[in-house]
Design a protein around this nucleic acid. Structure first.
Lengths: 239, 239
DNA sequence: ACGGGTCTGTAACTTAGGTTATCCGCAAAA
DNA sequence: TTTTGCGGATAACCTAAGTTACAGACCCGT
């Protein structure tokens, strides 16, 4: 169901019933892809964008040496490659971390929305700008935070983003990444990602087993992360 | 003159004379600010956006410990806080690296453009998405590239971006950053930024003195950077 | 002309995180 | 029921980058 995406939008901005109708009408197809499949390959000419209804996607940039950086994680409700509407090709792969359900929105439909529903155009633009803000926060993490602070920060951010779409329980959430994938998000080696995870466990802040993350001490976790969620722009905006 | 911004846009997308007129009309004022002034402070409610006509700006995010990460550098022609139009406040400071001339565009004017000139709205949206792509490339640098490769990459990127607006000579460009500021862009300490700079000099790739960067071996510099400019989306798009 | 500040350059030493190599447990093939 | 392969854990060792300290160059203000 597409309602997860509307839920996400509505946590930030009001969406009228007509706008909701327009969004729903823009979807021509719902596709499923398996874990580890590439949903969109870097450089490929694009004619539609993908609204992630369920599962996790990662934006991956690779170096020739094989090192990989995940520049953004996407969860249910995210319009994963909306930036592809104006860019027409991506500078990164969009890879499925888990099995995913994706709503396909043709660029023609988006173009039509921008022509006829300027407010909705601003809402979509806003949404790509929030993605960019999340990106900036990651840049700050990679540039200045220590490994443990980085990892704590990621766990805090995901808690908030998943909470918005009702994908958290009181003390945690399903976390489908392997340690290798986690390390690729944080700019660490797998070995050090593991060490860092152990340290967070040792300090009694989190538990992670069977692809389930339990946050034992959210205050403490936010503390080492210096987590301040204002960059997520979760509050009602005027557009 | 605002023509530097139009030059930048036109390297990527066609802009009609009417669109040019609309852009020019949206500017209500041109302001100058001194080096090290903060043009926009994080969190501050925004009612206009700034088009950088001349000088250099940096998007800065700080940690409580005083560590600073520059998440993006802006040069002449960049619409530095266009994302503020939809976000309404920034998650970072916008600081002047050098003296700057800034064209002020009220959000009302931008709103009017999005209402009445949907194609121009897409052009502006595109421009924030290119900024995000540059951001992603920096994330890749910080996460995976070595210090020397990171620095080489930055120098290559800036060469291309400055070339678009005619701010390069054949073999280099004016580079107003101190080594401290450079280190804040690259997620390094000043000391290590200096070491890395020495190494680039020693290898005969660049020269840097009196705030002027000379690239002695562009091929070689691009080589250690693994520089591929496709993420800058410098080619004509269809919008 | 002098004192203070900022920028650059280096040296000596430390450390966070990278590298390489095993080992264990488990689930899916076969 | 083995086998194979992946994910996780951990140990020993290594290195790129951080830290601290200091010195020279060049401002700029008085």
């Amino acid at each position: 169901m597409i309602s997860v995406a509307l839920k996400k939008l509505r946590r930030r901005i009001e969406i009228s019933t007509e706008e909701e109708r327009v969004i729903r009408a823009s979807i021509v197809e719902v596709r499923c892809i398996a874990a580890d499949e590439i949903a969109v390959r870097a450089g490929q000419p694009l004619h539609s964008s993908l609204l992630l209804l369920d599962g996790w996607l990662a934006r991956c940039k690779d170096l020739s040496s094989g090192e990989r950086q995940v520049t953004q994680l996407h969860v249910a409700g995210d319009f994963a490659d909306l930036h592809g509407f104006t860019l027409k090709r991506l500078d990164h792969d969009l890879a499925a971390i888990s099995e995913c359900r994706l709503a396909v929105v043709p660029h023609e439909a988006l173009r039509d929305i921008t022509d006829r529903f300027p407010r909705l155009a601003r809402v979509l633009w806003f949404s790509t700008n929030v993605d960019a803000a999340i990106q900036r926060e990651l840049t700050l993490s990679l540039g200045q935070r220590s490994a443990i602070s980085r990892m704590a920060h990621l766990f805090c951010e995901l808690y908030m983003r998943l909470e918005v779409v009702g994908k958290t329980s009181r003390d945690g959430y399903d976390f489908p990444l392997t340690q290798r994938e986690l390390s690729e998000c944080l700019g660490l080696t797998v070995v050090h990602a593991n060490r860092t995870l152990q340290e967070l466990r040792r300090r009694g802040l989190i538990e992670l087993e069977n692809r389930r993350l339990t946050i034992l001490d959210r205050r403490g976790l936010g503390g080492i992360a210096e987590f301040d969620p204002s960059y997520l722009y979760i509050d009602h905006q005027q557009l």
